[in-house]
Structure formats: structure tokens, C-alpha cells
Design a protein around this nucleic acid. Structure first.
Length: 289
DNA sequence: AGGCATGTTACAGG
DNA sequence: ACCTGTAACATGCC
């Protein structure tokens, strides 16, 4: 999935494309996403416009008028494609090239917008979802109500970190991936954050010192901001709303680098891969303690 | 063929 | 009620 930086990039891209365009029609090719798409609810979009797009953690919140909110999670392989049918040269468009490959069959939902514009929700594995809320029940939804602070926000700080891990015994990787502790990080970025903080993913949280927590917080913000700036990562399935792929993956230092030499200049160790809580963890056993 | 993949949630057990 | 770990979801790739 797209983790926080990827979702942020998608959000910014969509903002430039679909805001204030009337939704004329919605076509459901396959509504069996993580949750079945509610046909009655989605049809309420017709005749309305998206007036604002917000990101919370890895969720996108589309604001419509008349107290209608569309909550989207991209799961592991959800993507948005935007097509301008009017002015594109179809045969040279990104989407046309993509169709020649294999993605077209995973177009699950198509939103037809005014001026021959189309927004497509494409999701190979169907772990993503689209749900509808009103203002009162959106934040109370099971998805949003228990989310911890945003990693780029001021509420995710040393005091919060210390208080949260009191009386808890888990490894640091687990807790950084826990959306109740901090919301928006996933497996890739947590691997990168721990490498740049020189902390082993298996370290128990009660053994993390204050200066290390500070380092984690600082590196998290740095890495996320840089990833957003570079347009996110594109592992296999991510691309932003306009079909461009991000460049951050070229900056990975450990994720997917099993067997490669550690990127720290004075280190000759090889990156190791172990499984922690059922997820792959990549780290340097020499640099990360 | 089998294992792995950017995530979240329901569930079971403590 | 809280905390933690595990399995499940669907599809493609190596």
C-alpha cells in the first residue's frame, strides 16, 4: 500500500484534477472490494462535486456538498487514474499504454466527470475500500476513531512517545507500525526509519532511550517529507493520480536490499532480512543495535 | 507449486 | 475493558 507519503501525493494530484467537477455518472465494474460498495450511497455522488480532499493517515476523505463524505483506503494495491478524454491523444496517453499491459481489468469503479473527464479506481487485490459517511459518523467510524497522531504533526512528540510505551512490552518495529500509536507508517518506511536511527527492529520499546526516541521522531519526519517531495515510492503497484510513479524507492537504504552492502560508508556488513510480526524486516546487524 | 507482497480488522486468548 | 498475536481477505509475480 501506499503508506502516508504515497497517499499524500495522490491527494495532491487529485486536488489539481477533480475538484469542483460535477460527477455525472458512476460505473461499478466490481464492487466487491474490502467492503462491498454501497450502490445507494455511491449514487448520491451524481450531480455533486468534490469540493475538498483531505488525507488522514493513509485514508483519503473526499468532501462533497450536502453533508456527504467519501472515505477511501487504497489497501495494498489501490490506485487512482485520471483521464482527460477530451484533449488527450488516446494512443499516446499513459492510460492507453497501461491498457496494453494488464491493469485495465482491475478498474473497479469509474467516476464520469463533466467535460469528458474520468476518475478510475483500480485495485488489483481489492484490499482497498470506498465508504460513505456524513459529518457526524465519519470521525466515529471504526477506521478513523482509533487512529493515533499524524507522524508529521506536533502531537507526535517525545512526551507522547514516552507515555505511550510505558508498561508496554513490544518491539519497536511493531509499535511504529501500530496505527494507534502513530498513524500513517507502514512496513517500508518503518524499515527505513529504524535504519537511519541505528535501532534494531527487534529492540523492545522499554529499552529505547530518550535520545533514541527523539532520533526516531526526527528521522520519521525527515524521511516522510523527503518521500513526499520525491513523489512517493512505487514498488509494484503504486502510482499517483496522474499516473506518474514516485522516485523515493531509489532512496531506500534497507527495504528490499537483502544481501546488499550496508550503505553506511564505514560498514561492510550485509543487509539482513528477518520476519517480525509476519512482515519482512530489513536491517544492518552492525549499524542497528 | 509455494512463498511472498506497500494493510487492516475480527477474533481468540491472556 | 485492555493488550497482544494470528488468520483472513484477493491477486499476481518469482
Amino acid at each position: 500500500m501506499p503508506e502516508l507519503p504515497e497517499v499524500e501525493v495522490v491527494k495532491r494530484s487529485l486536488e489539481t484534477k477533480i475538484l469542483n467537477l460535477n460527477i455525472e455518472k458512476v460505473k461499478i465494474n466490481d464492487g466487491k472490494l474490502r467492503y462491498k460498495v454501497n450502490k445507494t450511497a455511491i449514487s448520491k455522488l451524481i450531480g455533486k462535486k468534490i469540493i475538498k480532499i483531505e488525507r488522514r493517515s493513509k485514508y483519503l476523505i473526499f468532501h462533497c456538498r450536502k453533508n456527504l463524505f467519501m472515505l477511501v483506503h487504497l489497501g495494498m494495491t489501490g490506485k487512482f487514474f485520471f483521464i482527460d478524454d477530451k484533449k488527450r491523444n488516446f494512443k499516446t496517453s499513459f492510460y492507453y499504454k497501461l491498457n496494453l499491459k494488464k491493469d485495465k481489468k482491475h478498474d473497479r469503479i469509474v467516476f464520469f466527470l463533466q467535460k469528458n473527464q474520468k476518475l478510475i479506481y483500480n485495485d488489483i487485490r481489492k484490499f482497498g475500500f470506498i465508504k460513505f459517511y456524513n459529518k457526524d459518523n465519519l470521525l466515529k467510524s471504526l477506521h478513523l476513531k482509533r487512529l493515533g497522531p499524524e507522524p508529521l504533526g506536533k502531537n507526535w512528540n517525545l512526551k507522547y512517545f514516552k507515555d505511550y510505551i510505558l508498561n508496554r512490552s513490544r518491539n519497536i518495529k511493531d509499535i511504529l507500525m501500530d496505527q494507534k500509536f502513530v498513524s500513517g507508517l507502514g512496513n517500508i518506511y518503518v524499515n527505513e526509519i529504524l535504519f537511519s536511527s541505528s535501532i534494531s527492529p527487534t529492540r523492545q520499546v522499554d529499552k529505547i532511550k530518550n535520545f533514541e526516541m527523539k532520533k526516531i521522531i526526527k528521522n520519521t519526519k525527515k524521511i516522510l517529507k523527503n518521500a513526499i517531495k520525491l513523489g512517493g515510492s512505487s514498488i509494484k503497484d503504486f502510482s499517483s493520480g496522474n499516473g506518474k510513479k514516485g522516485d523515493f524507492q531509489q532512496h531506500f537504504k534497507v527495504y528490499g536490499k537483502k544481501g546488499d552492502c550496508c550503505s553506511n560508508i564505514d560498514c561492510r556488513s550485509k543487509i539482513r532480512q528477518v520476519t517480525i510480526s509476519n512482515r519482512s524486516s530489513f536491517f544492518c546487524g552492525n549499524c542497528q543495535k
